[in-house]
Design a protein around this nucleic acid. Structure first.
Lengths: 337, 337
DNA sequence: TATTTTACAGAAAACGTTTTCCAAATTGAA
DNA sequence: TTCAATTTGGAAAACGTTTTCTGTAAAATA
């Protein structure tokens, strides 16, 4: 098909290019007669207006880049999916920025906004992918950005988060209620806000129940399957073993459960197990996994909405914190004496 | 930061805009002296060339849109991840087109290529998201496109596929070798090429082993978790139950295993279970899942590479078929008499 | 009928690049 | 020193839109 431009359509319809553009964007301001003429020309030629031309002129690409550590993680892919749904509703397209946990790549993707390829960024990371000049404010140095799920240290950035503290409290309290006193945790990286908050919830809840905090029971994972395996192996070596393990994500819990089962432990009779996220498989593994459900769809939806508001200069919530809910399933049970 | 254009840089460096552009794209054709001048201006101003302007001029957006049914599916997200890796290497960005199995959305995403937002398409679907004029050839009506994983009926389109037939043969033969005679399958949608090929492999293998084909044992699923649940429940109602179930994806196998366990069946002692895909969880569920491994990384990589070649008019493989490998784990065992 | 208002549509500039063409300056050979 | 050959860099067009500004014709008012 011969590449048609607005010029050709104008010629075909016998009007100016301005009129063609108006027919497309503001049909109401062009008279019905000419509108029809133009529409006919468009239909007959199969004209598709070039978005690049428009974007260049309007300074709006209509794209947002989502910077996320790993699409392969079901928690992340769930969010991406939600963002995309909402993006489509609002007329945006999603540029996928899977960083593979690599800072350099995150920077590359962040630059897309500076190069005009994207209008804004949704960032899932505790680290801002920009080289900042400490003499200037953060906001004046970066493109429109919403910080989601994992918080950076910059309070001036709009954020959509989840109540990690409360989530961890609920999970820990649930275990305490079942009589557990030696509750281990397999965390995410210590330098992430999510892990810090969850850890705080864990500690506070233990403290309130009068249970001494034991550093041996705190293992640093990295939110990936294998670290669930590795850290659980370490825990089982302890002379005084935990009676429950609280993993800061479901993937690690799945890794943990594998090790436990392989070594002959029964879940939950020998050891209780709690996850975090409630990925789709949490209710399909054996035993089904008690976990803290994250409102993935809501998180993605709101993040995109917020970015949209920022891009339109309409006031946006500066900070949204979504509640978390403990889903009790079969992997937790009363402690055995 | 004040938005800088090439014009401002040119002024700053005391050269023409052409020279700035040349310094950026073809440094070798500009003398070292001027190159330095320009580079200095660029560095000092933090100039970021606007990609839209360039794209408009060169008719290359540098984007590819990946049209895929559901990012949330781990098989899909694995491929997306692989595509993205390769895209980055080749200098492309990935526009995510999650269709949610909705044809209308697929069309919308496909149009992005026609609107100049993307240079080409990687399509994971058995249906071409275009309204075709039967009088013209397919190729002249659509943008550059690579058909991946799930084949459309259009032979003239470049494809990157997987040897579904052989995969199904291997899985079926494995069960037969274990003594199974009543082998059920839970397929994908019958109108997909992947399901047809796998079904063909299943039937042929049965036939070669002299086992009669029983239509009752063939259930149509939709490649989603729940259909694994539903179809398995139907199978268990049969008077003459299967001794093995071969699911055409791991998610359905996981659904199936849940139903089996819930109803007191031991896997593999009562019923053997085979999946397809080898998603990350296949080796973490209990019992670990025997499955047909798909070369996800390779599939994505080659698809992107092929699209790149098409975009550069260099000759590209028209059809690539990747081999499949059966991974035997604990979910399959000898038939009990 | 004369005058003001309104509705509509065209001309042209602008967005930020790349690239073609051409002129000037430099180099090298004679 | 002169002339051709070669570098080098500038002017300007082009990519495909949107939008401002302006002019004209029709409608409304007097």
């Amino acid at each position: 098909m011969a590449r048609m431009g607005i010029k050709q359509i104008a010629a075909l319809a016998g009007v100016s290019i301005a009129t063609v553009s108006r027919t497309l964007r503001n049909p109401e301001i062009v008279s019905e007669d000419t509108r029809k003429k133009v529409q006919k020309a468009i239909d007959e030629s199969g004209y598709k207006p070039n978005k690049l031309g428009a974007s260049l002129r309007t300074h709006r690409s209509g794209n947002v880049v989502v910077i996320i550590p790993d699409v392969t993680d079901p928690f992340n892919s769930g969010i991406i999916c939600a963002i995309e749904q909402q993006a489509q509703k609002l007329g945006y397209s999603v540029l996928l920025g899977d960083t593979q946990n690599d800072e350099a790549r995150a920077k590359q993707y962040a630059e897309m906004a500076e190069y005009g390829q994207a209008d804004g960024i949704i960032l899932f990371s505790h680290k801002l992918p920009f080289d900042l000049d400490p003499n200037k404010t953060v906001l004046e140095q970066i493109p429109p950005l919403v910080n989601a799920s994992e918080a950076t240290e910059h309070d001036e950035l709009p954020k959509v988060l989840v109540d990690n503290y409360s989530g961890a409290c609920q999970a820990t309290q649930h275990l305490i209620d079942l009589g557990h006193k030696r509750i281990a945790v397999i965390t995410g990286p210590f330098d992430t806000n999510s892990t810090q908050e969850r850890l705080r919830g864990y500690k506070d809840t233990l403290f309130n129940a009068g249970i001494a905090y034991d550093e041996q029971l705190v293992c640093e994972g990295d939110y990936q399957l294998d670290s669930g395996v590795n850290e659980t192996e370490k825990l089982l070596l302890l002379k005084n073993r935990p009676t429950a393990i609280f993993c800061f994500c479901d993937d690690m819990a799945i890794g943990s459960s594998k090790v436990l089962k392989e070594n002959g432990y029964d879940i939950p009779n020998d050891i209780s197990l709690v996850g975090f996220d409630d990925i789709r498989y949490a209710s399909y593994i054996t035993p089904t996994l008690t976990t803290v459900r994250q409102p993935v769809a809501e998180l993605g939806r709101i993040a995109m909405l917020q970015l949209h508001q920022i891009l339109n200069k309409s006031v946006a919530e500066q900070l949204t914190v979504l509640p978390l809910e403990l889903i009790v399933r079969q992997s937790t049970g009363p402690v055995k004496n």
